[in-house]
């Protein structure tokens, strides 16, 4: 019974970390209309920065400053935010899907570096022995799980509150205005790219935080944790929950993570050992098909209130879609 409870606590803890990432993506997409296809990359930056800052020194790779966890997490946010600032500075003024390609490329490249730069990142085996919060409780699984969950809930709540304040602030109103009618908002003297860049950076910082939280909760990280399927999962979480809606983002994260974990366990139980890897592939196929189906059948309720068409598409073309 206690085992089940602590499993559930852990499940919810991880779901909430994805929730934080989804909230970040919601700021990118829901509030500012930015296609960020590099979520996994920003999570990776956050995870590795936090690992470097908090782990004990190790001969095989750089880092190991053994700083307290809160500093690790702050550093993670800064690192991810910085990476986003760099990328955004180059792409923000360009057409919308150049950002998609660039963030995708960044995530792929980052994962490549994580895998190969052994002396920085520990290579394919990643970094282990990352200090976990409430380490003293580690021998009491239920208490440990509950404490971690409490921390996750606290952080998520803080992030959520901060985002709610942000969206209701003047800054948030400008972003909304930009999304509705860019020309009008720009004529008020608000530089659209500035605001979008800020939304991009803050959202990325949250993804970095999520990565850092996971690093601490799991205690180890590896490059293969940050493959494009992670980006895809977070997008599904956002789309399912309803973009533009912070509550929806969190709900989507919990639901999708639940489905993912459940299907994983189900496949694990049902399939014979030789078929495990193939079963994992099938799970991804299913999720891809489900997402496509949702986009086709329930577009309005899922992808926000209005369709955001690329700002470079002229109005005439918007009215007459291609056959």
């Amino acid at each position: 019974m206690l085992g089940l409870a602590s499993y559930f606590a852990f499940f919810l803890t991880v779901a909430l970390t994805y929730g934080v990432a989804t909230l970040g993506l919601n700021l990118n997409w829901g509030a500012a209309g930015l296609f960020n296809v590099g979520v996994a990359g920003f999570m990776a930056v956050g995870a590795y920065v936090s690992a470097w800052l908090t782990a004990a020194p190790v001969a095989s790779h750089w880092g190991g400053f053994a700083l307290p966890i809160p500093l690790g997490w702050a550093g993670a946010m800064a690192g991810a935010g910085l990476a986003a600032a760099g990328l955004g500075a180059i792409t923000m003024r360009l057409r919308a899907d150049y950002l998609a390609i660039t963030t995708f490329g960044a995530a792929v490249s980052l994962q490549l570096v994580a895998r190969n730069a052994v002396w920085i990142t520990g290579g394919p085996f990643g970094i282990a022995f990352i200090p976990r919060p409430f380490e003293r409780l580690a021998d009491r699984p239920f208490g440990f799980g509950l404490a971690n969950l409490g921390l996750a809930v606290l952080v998520t709540a803080l992030v959520w509150l901060a985002l709610e304040r942000l969206t209701r602030s003047p800054w948030g109103r400008v972003l909304r205005a930009l999304r509705e009618d860019e020309t009008a908002a720009a004529s008020l003297g608000k530089a659209p790219d500035h605001y979008r860049l800020q939304a991009f950076v803050i959202g990325a910082a949250l993804m970095g935080l999520a990565g850092a939280m996971q690093a601490q909760f799991f205690g180890f990280i590896a490059p293969d944790n940050y493959l494009p399927v992670i980006t895809f999962q977070v997008w599904v979480m956002l789309v399912l929950g309803g973009a533009g809606n912070n509550r929806g983002a969190l709900l989507g994260a919990v639901v999708v993570w639940g489905l993912w974990a459940l299907s994983g366990s189900a496949l694990h139980l049902v399939l014979p050992p030789g078929w495990q890897a193939r079963g994992a592939s099938l799970r991804v196929v299913a999720i891809g098909v489900v997402l496509a189906g949702m986009l086709l059948l329930r577009p309005r309720g899922l992808i926000g209130e209005e369709a955001t068409v690329s700002r470079h598409v002229p109005p005439a073309a918007r009215a007459e879609p291609l056959p």
Partner: peptide, 11 residues
């Protein structure tokens, strides 16, 4: 919905 196209292609 243009974003749907990109996400759908990813999926």
């Amino acid at each position: 919905t243009e974003i749907a196209l990109v996400i759908a292609s990813f999926g």
